[in-house]
Write a protein that binds this DNA or RNA. Structure first.
Length: 1098
RNA sequence: GGGCGGUUAGCUCAGUUGGUAGAGCGUCUCGCUUACACCGAGAAUGUCGGGGGUUCGAGUCCCUCACCGCCCACCA
């Protein structure tokens, strides 16, 4: 042992992973070295995500943590896959939220924004932003997000503000922005208009008041109903349905409005539902959207009764100055006094609340700026309908998005606030007596100078200008985010290269607010949908499955959990919970103790990885994976090595496939499974004895190589999910320079190693080089190479030839390219003819086994050993050959295939034994041809290993059942009539001995009478496991166990035989299913037989 | 009033194109075997919300009902 080196590599690695220092270290290192700084000049395939900008007012909540974890995983993955990656961070100015904060501060100081004035107010807001606006951004850093901080943006930055100006002016000049007097949602709390989206409808228990309005001529009255009595002060008519015969005689008559005694007409309008209430509707055109429409249709007066703060104005008559809710009660009281209240009904109805202000909004008419939606929406819808762009994941959200776009109304974009982008419109107030009125002429321009010039040209030198006081809706600037952050309207290199972005990751709650606004704006200004995919995730719910919200005060602080368990643990927890499509996830949490079982489980996982790595590091003699070299496919490579490498390869493919399809949760779970179970519980345990061998022993070296190779692979695969711990271990493992990062290493590529033969490819992998930072030149083609494994197979060329049938069948399996079979097999047919002849001949030779071995028929080599040595196998093989031949012939009859593939396969074929190829072909799925009844090929590695593992488990189980001391070595007999199984057990003999604590292991076809005496017995598959017991065994316990096992197996037998006795099943189910059932039945019956036999012997 | 999602082991959830029900946590029994007790080994647990239907076969497809949750909607 080279003690010194080993010590140097694993300097005092503690047995528990310590997250906080490690996380801080790498977060600092990544940021200081600008590891994630994007460089469009490096070319390659771009991958860009813009952050959904959090509010500057915000602080990190679980939703941010979740979303950032998702995005960071995607981004890190694609970066490692060799894409030129940019994740652009930034924040949003949150007009209303900031205004609310500043207004509150002013109020506390006994002043108002009007008193301090616009300039001082804005200074204050900027100051606030400088002090508090960084909070959320710094908290994001603690999540380990791999953003490019050099490109951080804020919606009120110079550049983004220019983009807003540009967008506004262009839309205005194209007639898509207009100013007008319309009904808007008015929030009395923020004293601003808000858009439809900022209104939340809440169902509340209210009342429906029925009032009697007398006819002016005294001939009677009508009864109307309302949920908002105070609005009657603004009534200018009463409507009935034109087809309502009850009231047709009243149409055209006048009513005397109570209290104000105004004369108002009765008129007919289709909008009125005659079945609701009395069928008479009071109409308040200035305070109800429906009434507004009716008012316009019937030329009714529009009487506004409200001030901006929600109190009644002079039109409120006796109630002037009252708050709207006081007025409501006062009106009711008044009418009750007059006897005009017919009924007060308990009534549940929805009331529109202001999202931000948390008070009911009032519909009222005011002069605002609007974006004309229809032309924009048409274009955006066309992208969706004609190009399926953007592509929603999960797809169901596309429908929601579509419906919304199709029903959009014009968007009110002006807000009566100061914090935000001031509307670039200047009023020629000199034309309207020095004040801004609805009819004051205005010019729209980028700057005051420009406005002045325009105005002078229009109104002369003496014109006086005043800029519109209002600011734009925050979402107006957010709508430009994906391209304004990349430099638009300038044609920057970033914009040219990274736009349109790859994926937008966001919550469903924001599809309308943000996603649709971006697609509307982007399709108009850039002619493109700003992202290819929209990945919609669910919400993080609290431990009671409640939506986390400020008002419910049930938020779970991610930073608290990070402090306790580490960022990687939290990230991993959130991501592994994501299953299926955009489902909400629930976070387990003990509020009293600030503990979370599920995050703790992830922390334990991190710790497991830590310790497994520690074990590996302690056993590499101080060598790095590079120094050790990749696992060589030589004699010292064991079954276990091949198995873990095969599993690893499959994991690589699976992980990539899942992430590519946004299956992050599934990928995370599979990694957990592989690391903990396959790698730690089995591989590491199996490899321990080999590591005790002297340094330099080939089997030890092979083990070290495999350990190092797989560990490094695991770190890479897991890095996007758990970036900090993997970066830390990777540095220790590889002894990488400080400026090198795992985050910038190429993601693993399946090597197609460790298959049926021990040979392992030695060639260098096609490595996609990440393009971030200065570490390397980009490799745009390598990414493509990964996506087409055929290409990488071709590259690996000659070194792989010995394995080609395995590779080929894998390739075919993977790509379902059945066409290939037909042509490949064309030349193989010849070989079949030969084999047929050979086998017939062999059967004719007496003492074949001996002769074969003696002569050492090199010609048939491994094939012969596996298939021809025993006569039962020969029979089986012959059957499979003829089946194969039929299949091949059939394929050829139907065959048509790609010429290039053919050429490739044929050239490969010439180099190899066609017989072996056929053997492999049996693995290929066939949809139309029944498989021959008996499997002939040797068990594949994974099946072999599963058998070994199951056998070990069975022995362990028996040991426990028999209360055999854990450390005690015992003898075990394994019996199977199946040669392939015996072969596999033979191969795993030492594993079974090591892990099941077996001294003497006997593998036999037939049991001797001796072996059947006093024994514990178990069954796995068709393998009988016997533990001869020297001493006395507990017969009752044994009987109980056997009976239990028997009951279970018997149930299986019933189930299968029942099915197989059903003629319809046998005749109608697919042959392979019937076959599987037959085999399962046979196995179960054998198990039954064994168990019964045992019971009888007791 | 429309639309969408959910209902599977005590808890949280997986279950790919229909083909003998799975994981984690928790529980129980062993175990300090020099990576890890934030660990290891073993075990138990489900008429897959109810009811119909299609099928040789349904957790998986269709219909229907129930419950939970979300989104949209101008019923005063």
């Amino acid at each position: 042992m080279t003690e010194t080196l080993s010590a140097a590599t694993t300097i005092n690695l503690p047995s528990q992973y310590e997250p906080s220092a490690t996380e801080a270290k790498w977060q600092g290192a990544w940021e200081q070295t600008q590891a994630f700084k994007a460089n469009p000049s490096q070319g390659g395939e771009p991958y860009c995500i813009v952050i959904p900008p959090p509010n500057v007012t915000g602080s990190l909540h679980m939703g941010h943590a979740f979303e950032s974890a998702l995005i960071d995983t995607l981004v890190r993955y694609h970066r490692m896959r060799g894409r030129n990656t940019l994740w652009l961070p930034g924040t949003d100015h949150a007009s209303i939220a900031v205004s609310t904060i500043i207004d509150k501060q002013l109020k506390a100081e006994g002043t108002t924004r009007q008193e301090v004035g616009r300039e001082a107010y804005l200074n204050r807001a900027w100051q606030w932003k400088a002090e508090s606006g960084g909070t959320i951004v710094n908290q994001l850093r603690r999540l380990g997000v791999s953003v490019d901080w050099s490109r951080e943006r804020f919606t009120m930055d110079e550049g983004l503000s220019q983009a807003v100006l540009e967008a506004f002016i262009r839309l205005y000049e194209e007639g898509l922005i207009y100013r007008g007097n319309y009904m808007v949602n008015w929030c009395p709390a923020s004293q601003s208009a808000v858009s439809d989206l900022e209104v939340e409808n809440k169902e509340i228990d209210g009342h429906l008041w029925h009032f009697r309005y007398p006819l002016s001529d005294g001939s009677g009255s009508v009864v109307v109903a309302t949920t908002r009595p105070e609005t009657m002060l603004g009534d200018t008519g009463v409507a009935v349905n034109p087809n309502d015969e009850r009231y047709s005689h009243l149409i055209g008559k006048m009513l005397k409005l109570p209290i104000l005694e105004r004369e108002i007409p009765i008129f007919a309008d289709e909008l009125v539902d005659p079945t609701f209430g009395t069928g008479c509707v009071k109409v308040t055109p200035a305070h109800d959207p429906n009434d507004f429409e009716m008012g316009k249709r019937h030329n009714l007066p529009f009487i506004n009764i409200l001030n901006k703060d929600g109190t009644l104005n002079e039109n409120g008559g006796p109630f002037e100055g009252m708050d709207r809710f006081e007025a409501r009660q006062a009106v009711v009281d008044w009418l009750q006094g007059d006897g005009a209240v017919v009924e007060i009904e308990e009534y549940k109805h929805t009331v529109p609340y202001s999202d931000r202000g948390k008070v009911p909004v009032e519909p009222l008419i005011s002069t605002q700026w609007f974006v004309k939606i229809e032309p924009l929406a048409q274009r955006t819808l066309a992208f969706l309908d004609e190009e399926q762009s953007p592509h929603f994941v999960p797809e169901r959200w596309a429908k929601v998005y579509r419906d919304w776009l199709a029903n959009l109304k014009d968007w009110c974009i002006s807000r009566q606030l100061w914090w935000g982008h001031q509307i670039p419109a200047w009023y020629a107030i000199s034309e309207t007596e020095g004040e801004v009125r609805d009819n004051t002429p205005f010019v729209v321009a980028k700057t005051e100078e420009e406005a002045k010039a325009k105005a002078i040209a229009q109104f002369g030198e003496q014109v006086q200008l005043k800029q519109d006081d209002d600011v734009l809706d925050t979402w107006f600037s957010s709508g430009l985010w994906p391209f304004s952050t990349l430099g638009w309207p300038e044609q920057t290199q970033d914009l040219a290269f990274y736009y349109p972005t790859a994926t937008l990751v966001t919550g469903f709650d924001i599809i309308f607010f943000w996603v649709a606004r971006m697609t509307l704006m982007a399709s108009h200004f850039t002619g493109q949908i700003p992202f290819k995919d929209v990945y919609i995730h669910g919400l993080v719910r609290d431990e009671n499955n409640k939506k986390m919200s400020k008002s419910a005060n049930n938020g779970i602080d991610p930073l608290l959990l990070i402090d306790k368990y580490g960022t990687d643990a939290l990230r991993y927890t959130l991501i592994r919970e994501v299953a299926g499509a955009g489902q909400d996830i629930r976070l387990e949490y003990n509020r009293a103790a600030d503990e979370s079982k599920s995050v703790e489980a992830s922390r334990n996982f991190a710790n497991k990885l830590w310790n497994a790595s520690r074990f590996v590091l302690l056993n590499l003699d101080g060598k790095t994976p590079a120094q050790l070299g990749k696992p060589q496919g030589n004699d010292s490579t064991e079954l276990a090595d091949q198995w873990i490498l095969t599993r690893f390869d499959r994991l690589v493919d699976q992980t990539c496939d899942q992430i590519d399809h946004y299956g992050l949760g599934e990928a995370a779970k599979a990694l957990y499974e592989f690391i903990w179970s396959d790698f730690c519980d089995w591989y590491i345990e199996l490899v321990k004895p080999r590591l005790r061998q002297p340094e330099g022993t080939p089997t030890r070296i092979a083990a070290q190589q495999t350990l190092a190779y797989v560990l490094e692979g695991i770190l890479k695969l897991l890095h996007p999910f758990m970036p900090h711990i993997t970066e830390e271990i990777w540095h220790t493992l590889t002894q990488a320079e400080a400026h090198q990062f795992l985050a910038l290493q190429p993601y693993p590529v399946a090597q197609n190693v460790g298959l049926a033969t021990p040979t392992i490819s030695l060639e260098s992998e096609p490595s996609p080089e990440p393009t971030n930072a200065d570490t390397s030149a980009s490799g745009p083609s390598s990414y493509a190479a990964y996506q087409a494994p055929a290409a990488s197979l071709a590259q690996t060329g000659l070194t792989l030839l010995s394995d080609w049938p395995d590779l080929l069948s894998r390739f075919i399996l993977r790509y379902q390219s059945e066409l290939l079979i037909a042509l490949l097999v064309g030349s193989a047919l010849i070989a079949i003819a030969i084999s047929d002849a050979v086998i017939s001949t062999l059967n004719a030779i007496p003492f074949l086994e001996t002769i074969l071995e003696g002569l050492g028929l090199i010609y048939l080599g491994q094939f012969a050993y596996k298939n021809l040595l025993w006569s039962d196998k020969r029979t089986v093989f012959l059957r499979s050959l003829s089946a194969e031949k039929a299949k091949i012939l059939k394929s050829i009859r139907e065959g048509s295939a790609s010429d290039t593939q053919t050429a490739q396969s044929e050239s490969l074929l010439e180099e190899n034994s066609a017989v072996k190829a056929l053997q492999r072909l049996r693995n290929i799925k066939s949809h139309d041809e029944p498989l021959p009844p008996i499997a002939t090929e040797p068990l594949d590695i994974e099946t072999q290993f599963t058998l070994i593992i199951d056998t070990i488990r069975t022995i362990r189980n028996l040991r426990q059942e028999a209360s055999i001391k854990p450390g005690l070595l015992i003898d075990v007999v394994l019996q199977s009539e199946n040669g392939r199984e015996r072969q596999a057990l033979q191969a795993g003999q030492t594993y079974i001995q090591d892990l099941a604590k077996v001294a003497n292991l006997t593998i036999t076809e037939q049991l001797t009478e001796d072996a059947q005496k006093q024994t514990m017995v178990g069954v796995t598959g068709t393998v009988q496991v016997l533990i001869p017991l020297a001493g006395v065994i507990d017969i009752d316990a044994l009987r109980a166990k056997l009976e239990k096992d028997l009951a279970k197996v018997d149930k299986e037998v019933q189930s299968f035989s029942g099915r197989l006795q059903n003629e319809k099943f046998v005749s109608q189910a697919p042959p392979e299913v019937v076959q599987v059932a037959r085999e399962s039945l046979a196995e179960a019956e054998l198990q039954c037989k064994i168990l019964r036999d045992r019971l009888n012997r007791l």
